[in-house]
Design a protein around this nucleic acid. Sequence first.
DNA 1: TCTATATTCTACTATCCAGTTATATATGAC
DNA 2: GTCATATATAACTGGATAGTAGAATATAGA
Lengths: 112, 112
Amino acid sequence: MAPRVMTPALLEELSERFKALGEPARLQLLAALRQGEHSVSDLVAITGLGQANVSKHLQLLCSAGFINRRKEGTFAYYALADSEVLQWCDLMCGRIEAEQRERRAALKLSRA
Amino acid sequence: MAPRVMTPALLEELSERFKALGEPARLQLLAALRQGEHSVSDLVAITGLGQANVSKHLQLLCSAGFINRRKEGTFAYYALADSEVLQWCDLMCGRIEAEQRERRAALKLSRA
DNA sequence: TCTATATTCTACTATCCAGTTATATATGAC
DNA sequence: GTCATATATAACTGGATAGTAGAATATAGA
């Protein structure tokens, strides 16, 4: 956000990126790519999602700049563009765990 | 994501947080709160969004843990829970700008 | 008390999108 | 060329949600 002007266009671009991460299926795909490059059919097998569905999600992640595509024969291999997005997921998971700890602590206090 | 098991429940929680950021109106509200605490009607004036709409978005951001609520008289004051979320927006804006630079550079090369 | 104001809640509409199915495209093997 | 496989695309459906309008709630002040 920063010392920068948030134009409607920038807000739209920004929200589009976060929206790309706001879907369990896409996070699952990113998690699968943590270990490295995978073909679409690999990812279908790993995630258990439908093939067309996976293909659509991968395209969305690709256009959001989180993953890259490499074509080889009839196969399409996708890989993380960089590790930044995984770091965000880790940080966000940390927030979630912290909140759960707080909730548990509050619960104990109220019972004491 | 991390060396952690991504259970369906965690994926759901995680996506919910990112989804909360995947909406221009909510990013606008967060940007407005960068300067500090604001009442609902302040935020309505700043953003130009409808009052009920702002109220709903604030509640969503609150339950996602990004902002806190303080009641005083008939007013409700909202403030950022911490600065982490703004840092993410900054980082994400950085990615967007980098991609735009790349696109422009690629365009120039293709014309040369 | 009554009135005005700030906020939240409820009900509704329109839009968006995840998931599915079926089809199309592309590449390699024969 | 035909056939099989991998991926992408198109069309459709159901469910979620942004936005709005109006009612309900709560608080402060006269």
